[in-house]
Amino acid sequence: MFRSLRSDGAPKVTLTINGQEVTAAAGQSVWSAMALTGQSVTRRAALSGENRSAYCAMGVCFECMVIIDGLPNQQACLHRVAEGMTVTTQNITQDCEAENAGP
């Protein structure tokens, strides 16, 4: 279970993570906002569809790629939350790539 040690009173922003509206401390990473709301699956592996989540939290593993405001492949650990931001688990599997590529 992830928990924040931040003292209350820090300015907050509201964002949407997989359809759920959440408040998060301004300046915090998108990844920790996800972790603190219990939404820790960042992407699904392209071939197997397996759940993946942040591994390094410092930008070198690319496991935390999510869709932020419609843009795919965004590293949740490097992005900061912003008011009105929309974050979704990245679900680009080979199957749906094939579908997208269809007529």
């Binding site: 279970m1 992830f2 928990r3 924040s4 040690l5 931040r6 401390a25 915090q28 990473s29 990844w31 920790s32 972790a35 603190l36 939290a57 410092m58 650990c77």
Partner: peptide
Amino acid sequence: VMLKSDATVAE
């Protein structure tokens, strides 16, 4: 990293 930049910990 989570502790230092976000004060986020895993119990």
